[in-house]
């Protein structure tokens, strides 16, 4: 378990998920139910894209069980996600990216200007 330190900033939180940024390791930490996943920036961006690209209507319409199996190459793990979990992941990621982009705007307009 990666413990929260002063260099770790909570970026966005939903009911069962949270996304933090660690300034000491330059990484993002996703806590999802009892799971914890660490991402470097580029891994995090491609993770978000993967979650966005999941085809929910297709997941609902097929005979197969309504779960999606997602492979995370950066930590060699598999995630098995229900539709609810996918929706919550999308929510936390959308919120987190909005906040991170806002942070970029603050850096561009204020921090780097002084």
């Amino acid at each position: 378990m990666i413990t929260a330190t002063s260099t770790e900033h909570l970026v966005y939180k939903t009911r069962n998920a949270s996304l933090s940024q660690s300034d000491s390791t330059n990484s993002y930490i996703l806590r999802f139910f009892n799971d914890e996943l660490e991402f470097r920036a580029c891994e995090f961006i491609s993770f978000k894209r993967k979650i966005q690209q999941l085809d929910l209507p297709q997941l609902l319409s097929t005979e197969a069980p309504d779960v999606e199996v997602l492979y995370l190459p950066h930590c060699d793990r598999l995630m098995v996600l229900s539709i609810h979990e996918i929706l919550e992941l999308r929510e936390v990621l959308a919120g987190a990216f909005t906040m991170l982009e806002l942070n970029s705007v603050i850096h561009r307009e204020i921090v780097r200007k002084v």
Binding site: Q21, D23, A41, C42, R49, N103, S104
Partner: peptide, 14 residues
């Protein structure tokens, strides 16, 4: 909070 995203997220997703 550092701006890690900008360092790696140079182009817009679109």
């Amino acid at each position: 909070m550092k701006d890690i995203l900008r360092r790696h997220h140079v182009l817009k997703e679109e």
